[in-house]
Amino acid sequence: MKIVHVANYNYLKDGQSYYATDYKIHQGLVRNGHFVYPFSYRDTARCANIFGSKKWGVGKTNKRLIETCRNIRPDLLLMAHAELITLETLREIRKMLPSIKIAMWFVDPLWLNHHITNINSKLPALDLFFATTGGELLRQFKLPDNRVAYIPNIVDASIESHKNYEREDLPIDFLFCGRDHKEPIRQAFLSTLSEQLSGLNTRFAGCLGNPLIFGHNYTDTLGKAKTGLSYNRRNDVSLYMSDRIAQLTGNGILTFTPRIPSMEILYTEDEVVYFDNIKDLITKATHFISADDEGREIAYRGWKKTHNSFNNIRVTRFIVETIFNQAYSEPYEWRNELY
Protein backbone atom coordinates (compact mmCIF):
# COMPACT_ATOMS: atom_id res chain seq x y z
CA MET A 1 0.00 0.00 0.00
CA LYS A 2 0.97 3.68 -0.05
CA ILE A 3 2.14 5.31 3.16
CA VAL A 4 3.04 8.90 3.93
CA HIS A 5 5.50 8.86 6.83
CA VAL A 6 5.64 12.17 8.69
CA ALA A 7 8.89 11.97 10.62
CA ASN A 8 11.94 13.99 11.56
CA TYR A 9 14.44 12.47 9.10
CA ASN A 10 16.84 15.37 9.78
CA TYR A 11 17.84 15.89 6.15
CA LEU A 12 19.37 19.24 7.06
CA LYS A 13 21.82 17.54 9.46
CA ASP A 14 23.58 15.71 6.64
CA GLY A 15 23.21 12.15 7.92
CA GLN A 16 24.21 12.93 11.49
CA SER A 17 21.50 10.65 12.89
CA TYR A 18 21.08 8.09 10.12
CA TYR A 19 20.49 5.39 12.76
CA ALA A 20 17.37 7.12 14.14
CA THR A 21 14.10 5.23 14.56
CA ASP A 22 12.58 7.30 11.71
CA TYR A 23 14.79 5.54 9.17
CA LYS A 24 14.40 2.12 10.73
CA ILE A 25 10.60 2.31 10.54
CA HIS A 26 10.79 3.69 7.01
CA GLN A 27 13.09 0.87 5.89
CA GLY A 28 11.01 -1.78 7.65
CA LEU A 29 7.84 -0.67 5.88
CA VAL A 30 9.62 -0.66 2.52
CA ARG A 31 11.01 -4.15 3.14
CA ASN A 32 7.46 -5.30 3.87
CA GLY A 33 6.53 -4.24 0.34
CA HIS A 34 4.96 -0.81 0.86
CA PHE A 35 5.61 2.47 -0.91
CA VAL A 36 6.70 4.98 1.74
CA TYR A 37 6.88 8.70 1.05
CA PRO A 38 9.10 10.55 3.55
CA PHE A 39 7.66 13.85 4.75
CA SER A 40 10.35 15.54 6.84
CA TYR A 41 8.10 17.90 8.74
CA ARG A 42 10.73 19.88 10.67
CA ASP A 43 12.92 20.38 7.62
CA THR A 44 9.84 21.42 5.63
CA ALA A 45 9.05 24.04 8.28
CA ARG A 46 12.60 25.37 8.39
CA CYS A 47 12.77 25.66 4.61
CA ALA A 48 9.45 27.50 4.47
CA ASN A 49 10.94 30.82 5.64
CA ILE A 50 14.19 32.73 5.17
CA PHE A 51 15.03 32.53 8.87
CA GLY A 52 15.08 28.71 9.03
CA SER A 53 12.54 28.82 11.86
CA LYS A 54 10.30 25.83 12.62
CA LYS A 55 7.78 28.09 14.35
CA TRP A 56 7.36 30.39 11.37
CA GLY A 57 7.00 27.47 9.00
CA VAL A 58 4.16 25.66 10.75
CA GLY A 59 1.37 26.98 8.53
CA LYS A 60 3.08 26.11 5.26
CA THR A 61 4.12 22.71 6.57
CA ASN A 62 0.53 21.77 7.35
CA LYS A 63 -0.62 22.97 3.94
CA ARG A 64 2.11 20.97 2.23
CA LEU A 65 1.16 17.82 4.15
CA ILE A 66 -2.42 18.18 2.95
CA GLU A 67 -1.21 18.64 -0.63
CA THR A 68 1.13 15.66 -0.30
CA CYS A 69 -1.78 13.46 0.76
CA ARG A 70 -3.90 14.88 -2.04
CA ASN A 71 -1.24 13.94 -4.58
CA ILE A 72 -0.33 10.51 -3.20
CA ARG A 73 -3.70 9.40 -1.78
CA PRO A 74 -2.06 7.19 0.86
CA ASP A 75 -3.76 4.27 2.60
CA LEU A 76 -1.94 5.19 5.79
CA LEU A 77 -0.68 8.44 7.26
CA LEU A 78 1.92 7.47 9.87
CA MET A 79 3.40 10.17 12.09
CA ALA A 80 6.37 10.34 14.43
CA HIS A 81 5.88 12.91 17.21
CA ALA A 82 4.80 15.48 14.59
CA GLU A 83 4.44 18.32 17.08
CA LEU A 84 4.05 20.83 14.23
CA ILE A 85 1.09 19.03 12.64
CA THR A 86 -2.33 20.24 13.79
CA LEU A 87 -5.56 18.40 14.51
CA GLU A 88 -7.27 20.55 11.89
CA THR A 89 -4.85 19.30 9.25
CA LEU A 90 -5.50 15.66 10.17
CA ARG A 91 -9.26 16.24 10.03
CA GLU A 92 -8.91 17.89 6.62
CA ILE A 93 -6.93 14.90 5.34
CA ARG A 94 -9.51 12.45 6.68
CA LYS A 95 -12.32 14.47 5.12
CA MET A 96 -10.47 14.37 1.80
CA LEU A 97 -9.64 10.65 2.14
CA PRO A 98 -12.42 9.01 4.21
CA SER A 99 -10.88 5.52 4.13
CA ILE A 100 -7.41 6.59 5.27
CA LYS A 101 -5.90 5.28 8.50
CA ILE A 102 -3.99 7.74 10.67
CA ALA A 103 -1.55 6.56 13.31
CA MET A 104 1.29 7.93 15.39
CA TRP A 105 4.39 6.39 16.96
CA PHE A 106 6.34 7.85 19.88
CA VAL A 107 9.69 6.97 21.45
CA ASP A 108 10.17 9.79 23.97
CA PRO A 109 9.06 9.76 27.65
CA LEU A 110 5.29 9.81 28.17
CA TRP A 111 5.45 11.54 31.56
CA LEU A 112 6.65 14.94 30.29
CA ASN A 113 3.91 17.56 30.01
CA HIS A 114 4.88 18.90 26.58
CA HIS A 115 4.79 15.39 25.11
CA ILE A 116 1.43 14.66 26.73
CA THR A 117 0.02 17.93 25.34
CA ASN A 118 1.31 17.13 21.86
CA ILE A 119 -0.15 13.61 21.83
CA ASN A 120 -3.50 14.68 23.27
CA SER A 121 -3.81 17.38 20.60
CA LYS A 122 -3.91 14.69 17.89
CA LEU A 123 -5.70 11.80 19.62
CA PRO A 124 -9.20 12.64 18.28
CA ALA A 125 -7.90 12.05 14.74
CA LEU A 126 -5.87 8.90 15.41
CA ASP A 127 -6.85 5.30 14.80
CA LEU A 128 -3.78 3.99 16.65
CA PHE A 129 -1.14 5.41 18.95
CA PHE A 130 2.09 3.41 19.41
CA ALA A 131 4.75 4.04 22.04
CA THR A 132 7.88 2.45 23.46
CA THR A 133 6.26 2.76 26.91
CA GLY A 134 3.69 0.37 28.35
CA GLY A 135 1.34 0.17 31.30
CA GLU A 136 -0.63 3.08 32.74
CA LEU A 137 1.36 5.75 30.94
CA LEU A 138 0.37 4.17 27.63
CA ARG A 139 -3.25 3.59 28.65
CA GLN A 140 -3.74 7.29 29.46
CA PHE A 141 -4.07 7.90 25.71
CA LYS A 142 -6.85 5.36 25.14
CA LEU A 143 -10.06 6.97 23.90
CA PRO A 144 -13.35 5.29 23.00
CA ASP A 145 -12.63 5.64 19.28
CA ASN A 146 -8.94 4.74 19.15
CA ARG A 147 -6.50 2.09 20.33
CA VAL A 148 -3.04 2.32 21.86
CA ALA A 149 -0.25 -0.24 21.59
CA TYR A 150 3.28 -0.85 22.77
CA ILE A 151 6.18 -1.34 20.38
CA PRO A 152 9.77 -2.25 21.35
CA ASN A 153 12.81 -0.26 20.30
CA ILE A 154 13.85 -1.31 16.82
CA VAL A 155 17.01 -2.55 15.14
CA ASP A 156 17.97 -2.63 11.48
CA ALA A 157 20.57 -5.21 10.49
CA SER A 158 22.10 -2.75 8.03
CA ILE A 159 22.62 -0.21 10.85
CA GLU A 160 23.28 -2.35 13.93
CA SER A 161 25.82 -4.34 11.96
CA HIS A 162 28.58 -5.05 14.50
CA LYS A 163 28.95 -8.44 16.17
CA ASN A 164 31.12 -7.51 19.12
CA TYR A 165 30.51 -10.84 20.85
CA GLU A 166 32.77 -12.43 18.23
CA ARG A 167 35.75 -10.20 19.05
CA GLU A 168 38.44 -10.34 21.71
CA ASP A 169 40.24 -7.11 20.76
CA LEU A 170 37.65 -4.52 21.85
CA PRO A 171 39.40 -1.43 23.30
CA ILE A 172 36.45 -0.06 25.35
CA ASP A 173 35.60 -2.11 28.44
CA PHE A 174 32.48 -0.14 29.41
CA LEU A 175 30.45 2.38 27.40
CA PHE A 176 27.64 4.77 28.22
CA CYS A 177 26.22 7.35 25.82
CA GLY A 178 23.52 9.71 27.09
CA ARG A 179 22.83 13.16 28.44
CA ASP A 180 22.91 14.21 32.09
CA HIS A 181 22.17 17.92 31.62
CA LYS A 182 19.88 19.27 34.37
CA GLU A 183 19.52 15.77 35.83
CA PRO A 184 21.47 15.78 39.12
CA ILE A 185 20.42 12.29 40.25
CA ARG A 186 21.41 10.75 36.94
CA GLN A 187 24.63 12.73 36.92
CA ALA A 188 25.52 11.59 40.44
CA PHE A 189 24.87 7.95 39.45
CA LEU A 190 27.13 8.23 36.40
CA SER A 191 29.81 10.12 38.32
CA THR A 192 29.99 7.41 40.98
CA LEU A 193 30.03 4.75 38.31
CA SER A 194 32.88 6.46 36.48
CA GLU A 195 34.92 6.74 39.65
CA GLN A 196 34.34 3.12 40.69
CA LEU A 197 35.27 1.79 37.24
CA SER A 198 38.29 4.06 36.86
CA GLY A 199 40.62 1.07 36.64
CA LEU A 200 38.94 0.00 33.42
CA ASN A 201 38.96 1.54 29.95
CA THR A 202 35.61 3.35 30.11
CA ARG A 203 33.96 5.80 27.74
CA PHE A 204 31.20 8.22 28.80
CA ALA A 205 29.76 10.37 25.99
CA GLY A 206 27.24 13.21 26.33
CA CYS A 207 27.59 13.31 30.12
CA LEU A 208 30.09 14.15 32.87
CA GLY A 209 31.37 17.05 30.77
CA ASN A 210 32.01 14.92 27.69
CA PRO A 211 30.52 15.88 24.30
CA LEU A 212 27.84 13.90 22.52
CA ILE A 213 28.90 11.84 19.54
CA PHE A 214 26.92 11.39 16.32
CA GLY A 215 26.98 9.74 12.92
CA HIS A 216 29.81 7.36 12.09
CA ASN A 217 31.68 8.45 15.20
CA TYR A 218 28.85 7.03 17.30
CA THR A 219 28.39 3.75 15.43
CA ASP A 220 32.16 3.28 15.25
CA THR A 221 32.37 3.74 19.03
CA LEU A 222 29.68 1.10 19.51
CA GLY A 223 31.79 -1.24 17.42
CA LYS A 224 34.65 -0.92 19.91
CA ALA A 225 32.76 -1.67 23.15
CA LYS A 226 32.83 -4.90 25.11
CA THR A 227 30.02 -3.89 27.51
CA GLY A 228 27.53 -1.02 27.67
CA LEU A 229 24.93 0.51 29.93
CA SER A 230 21.28 1.09 29.05
CA TYR A 231 20.10 3.55 31.70
CA ASN A 232 16.97 5.66 31.29
CA ARG A 233 15.82 8.92 32.78
CA ARG A 234 13.31 6.82 34.70
CA ASN A 235 13.75 3.12 35.34
CA ASP A 236 10.42 2.48 37.09
CA VAL A 237 8.14 2.75 34.04
CA SER A 238 6.66 -0.38 32.49
CA LEU A 239 8.60 -1.49 29.40
CA TYR A 240 10.15 1.95 28.91
CA MET A 241 13.68 1.93 27.56
CA SER A 242 15.57 4.35 25.37
CA ASP A 243 16.78 3.15 21.99
CA ARG A 244 20.19 2.50 23.57
CA ILE A 245 18.95 -0.99 24.50
CA ALA A 246 18.55 -1.82 20.80
CA GLN A 247 21.78 -0.12 19.75
CA LEU A 248 23.81 -1.93 22.39
CA THR A 249 22.34 -5.43 22.15
CA GLY A 250 21.93 -5.05 18.40
CA ASN A 251 25.69 -4.60 18.02
CA GLY A 252 26.50 -7.63 20.17
CA ILE A 253 27.56 -5.60 23.20
CA LEU A 254 27.04 -7.15 26.64
CA THR A 255 24.31 -4.86 28.00
CA PHE A 256 23.67 -3.89 31.61
CA THR A 257 20.18 -2.64 32.43
CA PRO A 258 18.18 -1.95 35.58
CA ARG A 259 15.20 -4.20 36.31
CA ILE A 260 12.56 -2.22 34.44
CA PRO A 261 8.97 -3.37 35.11
CA SER A 262 7.78 -6.04 32.66
CA MET A 263 11.06 -6.01 30.76
CA GLU A 264 11.30 -9.79 31.09
CA ILE A 265 8.66 -9.90 28.34
CA LEU A 266 11.43 -8.76 26.01
CA TYR A 267 14.72 -9.96 27.50
CA THR A 268 15.51 -12.89 29.78
CA GLU A 269 18.25 -13.06 32.41
CA ASP A 270 20.62 -14.80 30.00
CA GLU A 271 20.23 -12.16 27.24
CA VAL A 272 21.09 -9.01 29.21
CA VAL A 273 22.60 -8.43 32.65
CA TYR A 274 20.09 -6.97 35.09
CA PHE A 275 21.25 -4.98 38.10
CA ASP A 276 19.41 -3.78 41.23
CA ASN A 277 21.49 -0.75 42.24
CA ILE A 278 24.79 0.93 41.51
CA LYS A 279 26.73 -1.40 43.82
CA ASP A 280 25.28 -4.40 42.00
CA LEU A 281 26.12 -2.84 38.63
CA ILE A 282 29.73 -2.18 39.61
CA THR A 283 30.13 -5.74 40.88
CA LYS A 284 28.64 -7.27 37.73
CA ALA A 285 30.48 -4.96 35.34
CA THR A 286 33.81 -5.80 36.98
CA HIS A 287 33.01 -9.50 36.87
CA PHE A 288 31.86 -9.75 33.28
CA ILE A 289 34.63 -7.56 31.88
CA SER A 290 37.06 -10.07 33.41
CA ALA A 291 34.97 -13.16 32.59
CA ASP A 292 35.19 -12.52 28.87
CA ASP A 293 33.81 -15.82 27.56
CA GLU A 294 30.79 -15.73 29.86
CA GLY A 295 30.04 -12.14 28.94
CA ARG A 296 30.34 -12.75 25.21
CA GLU A 297 27.89 -15.65 25.44
CA ILE A 298 25.25 -13.42 27.05
CA ALA A 299 26.02 -10.69 24.51
CA TYR A 300 25.45 -13.19 21.69
CA ARG A 301 22.07 -14.26 23.07
CA GLY A 302 21.05 -10.61 23.51
CA TRP A 303 22.12 -9.85 19.94
CA LYS A 304 20.18 -12.85 18.64
CA LYS A 305 17.01 -11.89 20.55
CA THR A 306 17.15 -8.29 19.36
CA HIS A 307 17.71 -9.13 15.70
CA ASN A 308 15.18 -11.97 15.67
CA SER A 309 12.39 -10.28 17.64
CA PHE A 310 12.82 -6.51 17.38
CA ASN A 311 14.01 -6.02 13.82
CA ASN A 312 12.29 -3.32 11.78
CA ILE A 313 10.62 -5.74 9.37
CA ARG A 314 8.86 -7.59 12.18
CA VAL A 315 7.92 -4.53 14.24
CA THR A 316 6.53 -2.58 11.28
CA ARG A 317 4.55 -5.66 10.26
CA PHE A 318 3.02 -5.60 13.73
CA ILE A 319 2.27 -1.89 13.33
CA VAL A 320 0.46 -2.40 10.02
CA GLU A 321 -1.44 -5.49 11.19
CA THR A 322 -2.59 -3.63 14.30
CA ILE A 323 -3.68 -0.49 12.44
CA PHE A 324 -5.70 -2.46 9.90
CA ASN A 325 -7.07 -4.86 12.52
CA GLN A 326 -5.60 -7.89 10.78
CA ALA A 327 -4.99 -11.24 12.43
CA TYR A 328 -1.43 -11.29 13.72
CA SER A 329 0.89 -13.27 11.48
CA GLU A 330 2.92 -14.42 14.50
CA PRO A 331 2.76 -14.26 18.31
CA TYR A 332 4.51 -10.96 19.00
CA GLU A 333 5.92 -11.00 22.52
CA TRP A 334 4.43 -7.59 23.39
CA ARG A 335 1.02 -8.15 21.75
CA ASN A 336 -0.88 -8.00 25.06
CA GLU A 337 0.13 -4.36 25.52
CA LEU A 338 -2.72 -3.33 23.22
CA TYR A 339 -5.68 -1.42 24.61
Rank of each mutant, 00 (worst) to 15 (best):
E160Q: 15
G215T: 06
D243A: 11
W303T: 05
I313H: 06
I298F: 11
A188D: 13
S194H: 14
F204G: 01
G199H: 13
Y11P: 07
R167P: 07
E269R: 13
G223P: 06
A7K: 02
Y328S: 11
N251K: 10
N232L: 08
D276R: 12
R31M: 14
I253Q: 05
P38R: 03
A327F: 02
I298A: 01
L143F: 08
L222A: 03
E183K: 05
P124N: 00
F204Y: 15
S161P: 03
H5I: 09
L137A: 02
S194Q: 15
F174Y: 10
N153S: 12
Y19R: 05
S290W: 01
N113K: 15
H34I: 04
D75M: 04
N113H: 09
S40D: 08
L65G: 07
V237A: 09
G199N: 14
N8C: 04
T192I: 11
R186Q: 04
M241R: 04
F288V: 06
K142A: 09
I25G: 06
F189S: 00
V30S: 04
P211D: 14
N120H: 11
H307C: 15
S191D: 02
L193M: 14
I154M: 13
R139C: 11
V30A: 03
E321S: 03
A285V: 15
M96S: 07
D236Y: 09
A225N: 08
V272D: 06
D75F: 05
D156E: 14
L110W: 00
Q196S: 15
K182D: 08
H162Y: 15
Y328L: 14
N32D: 13
V58P: 03
A157E: 06
C207V: 03
Y19S: 09
L248G: 05
H162W: 12
N251R: 02
V272A: 04
A188N: 10
Y339C: 08
E321G: 09
A82L: 05
M263P: 01
L222D: 10
N113Y: 07
M1T: 12
F129W: 00
R147A: 10
N113R: 13
A149N: 00
L110P: 02
K24Q: 13
K226V: 12
F176E: 10
W56V: 04
I25S: 01
Q16I: 11
S238Y: 07
T306W: 00
R234Q: 14
R139T: 13
R64L: 14
L338V: 09
R259N: 10
R94E: 13
V36A: 03
P109Q: 03
